[in-house]
């Protein structure tokens, strides 16, 4: 593998949250005695992946599977419990605030809810100006304004709106402003966490086009988080499918959609409603998604999987690379037990 053009790599990242609460919340009465019990959410468990320069890697999966947590670990917003994050060949998960500064410029994040991510008391001008002044104290007032104008034009927000506050904008416009904020420092790498999920379809298309255009013009690399598989198919170079905090399949977008291999991916893809097509027989999953507090043993998917056998109950499947480059964590695939 050519490692030169790898911009980001995540190695065996684990992120757990302790939600035990206070001392009293932890006391449990079990089998005739009191014990202290800690409750941990095992949000991300041993995830490794890399992203090449210029590509869009999407992470998909159902609610609670750990997508946002992974994104935040990448951005340095959550320290991982173990594992490493490398950016441009340098390990960044263990840096202090000051050491992290240059990376804060190169790496930007766009959130699902522009309501929450934009400061309601700041005008568009202030929102865009602040990061520039912070990271580029050498710029003059004029230079800053030029830069803001340029970005505003690129994201399609009217220059005349510069003195307005977030609440005066629609959801789509607000998302444009948060994209403008994401672009203002000329980043190389953008983590977009469900950037279009809160928007209506007609507006969603505008924002997706904008993100793709910015990507082309600025040679950006994206880590794109979403649960919308049609969006994923449209924008991704490669796709990682997550289930309960682990990657079960990672493949080129066209391969994944043409020939999903993991039993979970198969079920997930068969469930997407496609406009104008009567649904092909949906692959039904047994049971419910377990909670990340009580992770299943072995393959996290085994309780819902029709191919599960003894080995799946006990042994965690490793992410293996197939001939076409697709990575799969499934014993049944490895053992060739899945026909078609």
């Amino acid at each position: 593998m050519n490692t030169d053009n790898i911009i980001l790599s995540i190695r065996n990242v684990v992120k757990h949250f302790d939600i035990s609460g206070g001392f009293l919340d932890q006391i449990r009465f079990k089998k005739g005695r009191f014990r202290l019990e800690e409750t941990t959410v095992k949000a991300v468990n041993d995830v490794s992946l890399f992203i090449k320069k210029g590509e869009t890697l999407s992470v998909v999966g159902e609610s609670g599977c750990g997508k946002s947590t992974l994104a935040r670990v990448v951005m340095g917003l959550y320290p991982p419990n173990s594992g490493e994050v490398h950016y441009g060949g340098k390990r960044i998960d263990n840096l202090n605030h000051k050491q992290m500064l240059p990376f804060r410029k190169k790496m930007q994040m766009i959130f699902q809810d522009p309501y929450a991510s934009l400061n309601p008391r700041k005008t568009v001008q202030q929102t865009l100006e602040e990061p520039l002044r912070f990271h580029h104290p050498e710029l003059s007032g004029n230079e800053i304004n030029d830069k803001i104008d340029q970005v505003m034009e690129q994201v399609g927000v009217d220059q005349a709106w510069i003195k307005r506050y977030p609440h005066e904008f629609s959801g789509g416009q607000r998302q444009r402003i948060s994209i403008a904020r994401g672009l203002i420092l000329d980043p190389e790498f953008i983590v977009a966490d469900e950037p279009v999920s809160a928007l209506d379809v007609s507006i969603q298309a505008q924002i997706l086009n904008l993100l793709m255009k910015a990507g082309r013009e600025r040679d950006l690399t994206y880590l794109f988080i979403t649960h919308d598989l049609s969006v994923v198919r449209h924008i991704s170079t490669r796709v990682a499918v997550m289930y309960l905090g682990t990657i079960c399949e990672l493949a080129k977008a066209e391969d994944l959609f043409a020939d999903p291999r993991h039993p979970y991916t198969k079920a997930l893809l068969s469930a997407i409603p496609v406009v104008g097509e009567k649904r092909a027989k949906q692959i039904k999953l047994k049971g419910e998604v377990p909670t990340p507090v009580h992770l299943p043993t072995g393959c996290v998917f085994h309780a819902r999987c029709v191919y599960a056998n003894e080995r799946c109950l006990h042994q965690i499947p490793e992410l293996l690379t197939l001939d076409n480059g697709t990575c799969i964590a499934c014993h049944a695939v490895e053992e060739n037990r899945i026909i078609s």
Binding site: S170, D200, V201, S202, A205, Q206, N209, H234, V275, G276
Partner: peptide, 24 residues
């Protein structure tokens, strides 16, 4: 416009989606 702006209906992946300008 609504139907065409949905990814995967008429546009090949990676190309610009049909978009309806403006908003309701």
């Amino acid at each position: 416009g609504l139907i065409k702006s949905i990814p995967g209906t008429v546009i090949t992946p990676g190309c610009d989606l049909v978009q309806i300008p403006g908003m309701m």
